[in-house]
């Protein structure tokens, strides 16, 4: 298994990856509560970014409505927990199922009717907005007044019910992120992954090679929406409150896509690097602003916007491609390194 996963990856890249993972695993032992909270946010965005990247980065379908799948995952498991006492891990398959079903409807409508590009993006926004307004009136889960999970001060961790201290949540989201990374790694180097990339690069040319583009675009939205739902489960149980206005708002969807765009769309490390960069820098900025006593409400987001602006203007492919060349772990060196002539 490990051998297969690491095939073709240069040794020092493996070492770097192992070091990063080790650092993340031991982090809670050294980090204070604040730093742990920041790390949780980073990993949350790394996870959702990875899920979004399957659609946009791999298959080239721009979704601006991923908050929909987060929200559906969150509300499903929260409702099952609050109303029926069903734990999040049992609720999760249901959450994934509902998310995937919604993804299937959106994908079917869009791809069957040939809605693509910016039009597709607008369609995804429209569905997230539908959900936002719908949940505003859905009183079974609190409507616009919000939906709350019971909160108490936990002295021990109850992993089965996801009730506990920040360190437990940290390991949960770390595990999710690691699984998402491995899954995306496998997908990228698979038949589906190559078909997606072909569709992303040139859909008509892909069809001329026998690729049923409708089917593979459907796979992309199904996998991506299914992967996003667990982030919602995490969100619900970590923050313990859900408001339609916030959960499904378009800014939530945009936050999800910032990491992978800044890190590098279509790369495996892009969503992770991007999440670290944007959340990390935003926190540093926040600290500095508080230090100087100037802390207006929008400052952090202006910074997000500026980061995005600078990255799309200067590094159209994100931070990861040049960074990987710098670290000498990019695909070119990997290829020339280990392939023999036949």
């Amino acid at each position: 298994m490990m051998k297969r996963l690491l095939h073709g990856v240069p040794l020092h890249a493996t070492v770097l990856l192992a070091l990063l993972l080790a650092a993340l695993v031991v982090a809670p032992a050294f980090a204070n509560d604040y730093l742990l909270t920041v790390l949780i946010v980073i990993l949350y965005f790394a996870y959702t970014g990875q899920a979004w990247n399957v659609m946009m980065g791999f298959a080239g379908q721009l979704s601006l409505g991923h908050a929909l799948y987060v929200g559906l995952g969150a509300y499903t498991t929260a409702a099952l927990y609050v109303h029926f006492g069903i734990g999040p891990w049992i609720g999760m398959p249901m959450a994934i199922l509902i998310s995937v079903a919604c993804g299937a409807i959106i994908g079917f409508l869009a791809f069957r009717f040939g809605v693509g590009g910016v039009y597709f993006a607008i369609l995804t926004i429209a569905f997230a907005e539908f959900a936002r307004i719908g949940f505003d009136h859905f009183s079974w889960v609190g409507g616009s007044a919000g939906f709350f999970l019971p909160v108490a001060n936990y002295s021990h961790d109850d992993l089965m019910n996801l009730r506990g201290r920040p360190a437990m949540f940290y390991y949960v989201i770390l595990a999710l992120t690691a699984v998402a990374f491995l899954l995306c790694h496998a997908l990228m180097r698979s038949r589906v992954g190559y078909f997606w990339q072909a569709i992303r690069e040139d859909e008509e040319a892909a069809r001329s090679l026998g690729i049923d583009t409708f089917r593979y675009k459907m796979y992309a939205i199904l996998i991506s929406s299914g992967m996003t739902a667990p982030a919602g489960v995490f969100f619900a149980f970590y923050y313990n409150n859900l408001f339609p206005e916030q959960t499904f708002f378009i800014l939530r969807s945009i936050e999800i896509i910032l990491g992978p765009i800044i890190g590098g769309v279509g790369t495996l490390f892009g969503p992770i690097i991007g999440a670290f960069l944007i959340t990390g820098l935003a926190e540093v900025l926040q600290e500095l602003l508080t230090w100087y006593g100037f802390d207006p409400p929008g400052a952090k987001r202006v910074f997000y916007g500026l980061c995005l602006l600078v990255v799309v203007m200067i590094l159209p492919h994100g931070v990861w491609p040049p960074l990987s060349r710098l670290l000498r772990v990019d695909r070119e060196t990997e290829r020339t390194g280990d392939k023999a002539e036949p």
Binding site: M56, L62, G117, V118, A121, I254, I261, V265, P296, P297, G298, A299, K300, R301, V302, Y304, G305, L306, L308, L309, V312, M313, P316
Partner: peptide, 23 residues
């Protein structure tokens, strides 16, 4: 540049405007 790239650029402008006005 590709459609999504233009889109991101203007999205960045939009984010800056919204929050600039907020400040």
């Amino acid at each position: 540049r590709p459609e999504h790239s233009q889109f991101m650029l203007l999205l960045a402008v939009a984010i800056i405007i919204v929050n600039g006005l907020l400040i």
